[in-house]
């Protein structure tokens, strides 16, 4: 079994194929996991749908919505001020923002809740408050928030108030950096 370079190169070539195959396998894992989970149903990748389907059974709750600004030159209003709903139900509510100034404004909405401790039970799937928003001069925009009330909402809470305040981001005009690249405020209240 003495060294025969040709043998060595052949073996090394074969081993390199193993290396290549493993690298490809790493990239195959995302689709494989998805396929496996859908096939077995052990992890429903469409959780949100299932959530809605079973939503009928929650207990009734009244939601109230409130919108404020804090020196931003924005007009910020809730398009719906109250809503009769149930825990577990998927809700979308829209807010309206108008930039009254003649320059772009970067704003960040900060949520607050009434009663104070229900914040943890408001499960937001998406919210304009997750990132900074830039409004062009005079722009009017409708901003949605999608959420559900957790079924474990304490029984003594019959009305939940969700309130947002828009703050201007200092020096933030024109800053459109998406949250994922680490712009400092992710601003999610939950």
């Amino acid at each position: 079994m003495t060294a025969l370079p040709a043998n060595n190169y052949r073996l090394a070539g074969g081993l390199s194929l193993v290396v290549l195959a493993s690298f490809v396998f790493a990239y195959l894992q995302p689709p494989l996991y998805r396929a496996f989970c859908e096939w077995t149903g052990i992890y429903d990748v469409q959780k949100a749908d299932e959530f809605r389907a079973s939503s009928v059974v929650g207990r009734p709750v009244t939601m109230e919505f409130d919108a404020n600004t804090h020196g931003t030159g924005l007009r910020f209003t809730a398009l719906q001020t109250s809503l009769a709903t149930h825990t577990g139900e998927l809700i979308q509510v829209n807010f309206r923002v108008e930039n009254l100034t003649n320059h772009p404004v970067t704003g960040q909405a900060i949520p607050s809740y009434g009663p104070k401790h229900v914040g943890n039970f408001v499960k937001k799937l998406d919210c304009f408050c997750f990132r900074q928003q830039v409004f062009a001069p005079g722009e009017v925009r409708v901003l949605p928030v999608v959420f559900a009330l957790d079924r474990t909402l304490p029984d003594d809470v019959g009305t939940v108030t969700l309130s947002y305040t828009f703050f201007e981001v200092p020096g933030g005009v024109g800053s459109t950096a998406p949250v994922v690249n680490g712009s400092a405020t992710s601003g999610s209240g939950i």
């Binding site: 493993s22 790493a26 990239y27």
Partner: peptide, 19 residues
């Protein structure tokens, strides 16, 4: 090593392209 290191390389490459 030859079976698992490329997996790590793939994982961090995915991180890099996500970034």
């Amino acid at each position: 090593l030859i079976a698992s290191m490329p997996i790590l390389a793939g994982a961090v490459t995915m991180l890099l392209t996500d970034r």
